[in-house]
Design a protein around this nucleic acid. Structure first.
Lengths: 361, 361
DNA sequence: TTGTAAGCGTTATCAA
DNA sequence: TTGATAACGCTTACAA
């Protein structure tokens, strides 16, 4: 293949190959070093005359530097590695979206690695990404594969954890304020009159956000119950349940038991994410119960469809876009050299009350 | 795992820096070229003795080649660029997921660029991605920015178009069989007894998939009506409507008109994607109509929530994962050197009938 | 069969 | 202020 050299190109307007810094140097009649200086240290040391010559040449050749070569030389790539546990999860996607935007705005590109819920592959992901010299990581993973992320940190690559913290890792952490969010949802249910509550979660398995939500739910119940007792009204009870996608019978049973325990009182469910919410909705359909009157429901994660399922699903909206943006922002600050002990940034959730938490419509 | 270079490393188990090919060569007592040969042409030309020495050294240093350096030298990067018009769109995400999986399996990593529905940025995206030497592109974009993708093709980078074709571009195209899918949905409505049909789409704006669905709907109506006349039953009518997110009044009006036109007959809607479906559902709620009895609805795109909205939403499920997989597969074949005229791969949709297209429950 | 050396497109360290 | 020149980590003629 004749590479460039004029020849009878069918499209004369296109420089068949990308121009290199050498081409620019030749065109401008200067050295490569000068061109490089123009690019990187525009402010310092450059004769007006030479500078414009270079500038013209760059424009003429539509030159832009090769990030690959720069990465090789500098050891930095303007790439950010994003590892998500499961891109099926709408929450991950929402975060991804926020992060992608922030990265683009800061001139970074995102390299994506999806674990497909196979936490074993976490170190594989991080290795692949480090190989490409990504400048930093945004991790939304289990952190089971403990060494993996720690390696990255040790290699001096900044890491930001989103939603799920890793055990004793020195990294910024960005997440929903789970304590506040659980309180928001549980209190709303309790005040609406639902007094026998059940927290339904995916299998907890040490996933930090699940652990937190679950334990916060427990403490909400005991705190509130204690307060109630002090006021002579001791009817609030709570329990928790871990639901799997397969075992729908177990969920049906848990809900039946819940209603039985409730007795005269109203039963209510707080579900830990959108997937679980849908499972509860499906169970309700199987049981033939009405959302609201028969069972109160508040679910984590607001979605476009929340308003239209049953009487409308009450949700706790996470600031997903902002989580992604903030995570990327944190990372970029670190990349700019910010030295600070690991930060913890918790963003508040927002309650969106709808029919599913209204005892009577 | 004891690496080598003593020094007082705080973490003795980690080789502070990534090992390079030179390190391996030194460790094995051979030349860099030999190591490189071992890596790339393991099969040919290598003494058993030397080969094992290299192998041992590589293992000892946990060496893996730098893809950046390889890319620089080879001009190929094992990177695939994915450009999506709007990552908010669940369809895009589903495709992304399928593609990501296929790429990973083939040893490619995905670089993601989201246009955020700003079609102007398409060439920006493609340029950024080519700068990183991506080996090929998967494009789910409008193709408004005509030159952009064409440039990539001209530079010899294979391109696969997903869901949206670009005008006269030489590239593989992977998509739902829109003709078949429209027929599936419209016929289902018609057979269920809905005889005054409305196709509701997002603003068509030259987006190829929208254009196709809309025109296929029109021809379904005229074909079927013609056949009906031949049989003496000429009561099937159809029209189309473009809905925007803002102007909900217009949609309400369109539905009211539809029902009026229907007269004694039943009105039915075919909606062009999940977003539009939700808009129609919202309009129904505003109008106080019942899905099914008052208006039949079939929507493109199956989602996890389709079963739980109203009486269940009838949908036309796209094989999203497979679309992504096939697209990535096509690209990878091309990368392996497959020379073929541009292919067109259409995957069938599947009708999922539910309550929203049942006149009586 | 193996080694030497020349690049790939940059940036950085020297002299000039 | 500018220009050679040597890396960065790898592949690949070409020699040996």
């Amino acid at each position: 293949m004749p590479p460039k050299s004029s020849s009878k190109a069918t499209t004369p307007t296109q420089p068949a190959e990308r121009a290199t810094i050498a081409d620019v140097a030749r065109e401008a009649g200067v050295s490569k070093a000068t061109v490089s200086r123009f690019l990187n240290h525009r402010d310092t040391l450059l004769t007006r005359d030479i500078a414009t010559r270079v500038e013209v040449a760059i424009a003429a050749l539509a030159y832009s530097p090769s990030p690959m070569a720069q990465a090789l030389k500098r050891g930095r790539s303007r790439l950010i590695g994003l590892v998500v546990a499961d891109i099926t999860n709408p929450f991950s996607v929402a975060v991804l979206r926020g992060a992608e935007k922030a990265c683009q705005d800061a001139g970074y590109l995102l390299m994506l690695f999806n674990l497909g819920n196979d936490s074993q592959r976490e170190s594989e992901a991080i290795q692949a990404l480090t190989a490409y010299q990504v400048d930093g990581f945004i991790l939304n993973t289990l952190g089971r594969d403990a060494g993996a992320a720690a390696d990255a940190v040790r290699h001096g690559k900044p890491v930001v954890l989103v939603d799920r913290r890793h055990h004793d890792m020195q990294a910024d952490f960005v997440s929903l304020d789970n304590a506040g969010a659980v309180r928001l949802g549980a209190r709303h249910l309790a005040q609406a009159g639902y007094r026998e509550l059940l927290f339904v979660s995916e299998p907890i398995k040490d996933v930090s956000s699940r652990v937190e939500r679950c334990s916060r739910f427990r403490s909400f119940i005991s705190d509130t119950a204690a307060a109630d007792i002090a006021q002579g009204a001791a009817d609030l009870q709570g329990s928790t349940f871990e639901s799997t996608a397969e075992d729908t019978d177990a969920l049906d049973m848990a809900l039946r038991n819940l209603r039985q325990r409730a007795g005269q009182r109203l039963p209510g469910v707080l579900s830990s994410n959108a997937v679980v919410t849908l499972r509860v909705v499906a169970a309700m359909a199987r049981l033939g119960w009405q959302l609201g009157p028969d069972l109160g429901l508040v679910g984590f994660d607001e979605t476009e469809w929340s308003p239209y399922v049953g009487p409308g699903l009450s949700t706790i909206a996470q600031p997903t876009d902002e989580l992604g943006r903030v995570a990327a922002g944190c990372l970029i600050e670190r990349l700019k050299g910010l030295e600070l002990p690991p930060r913890q940034i918790l963003l508040p959730g927002r309650l969106v009350p709808r029919g599913s938490s209204a005892p009577s419509s």
